[in-house]
Amino acid sequence: MSQIDVELNGETRQIPSSLTLKGLLEHLELDPRKVAVERNLEIAPRDGYDSIRIEAGDRLEIVHFVGGG
């Protein structure tokens, strides 16, 4: 399977090409219900994870809630 480079949480990573965002989260073993994703500075809407295709060079931020004051 061919690979592409993306920037994930500030680090360059190789991932399989032609993944959807849902596929990427599965690949990363993340529960889509517990994270939020920003793609190229735009919020990736939760109901669009199936249709958003990850492309080479995408800048992705995957965040979740942690303890804070």
Partner: peptide
């Protein structure tokens, strides 16, 4: 409760989660 928003640790996705 107040919570912060931070990057997920991608090297260890099994870390405990607040939720």
């Amino acid at each position: 409760i107040t919570v912060a928003v931070r990057r997920v640790n991608l090297s260890d996705p099994s870390q405990p989660r607040l939720v």
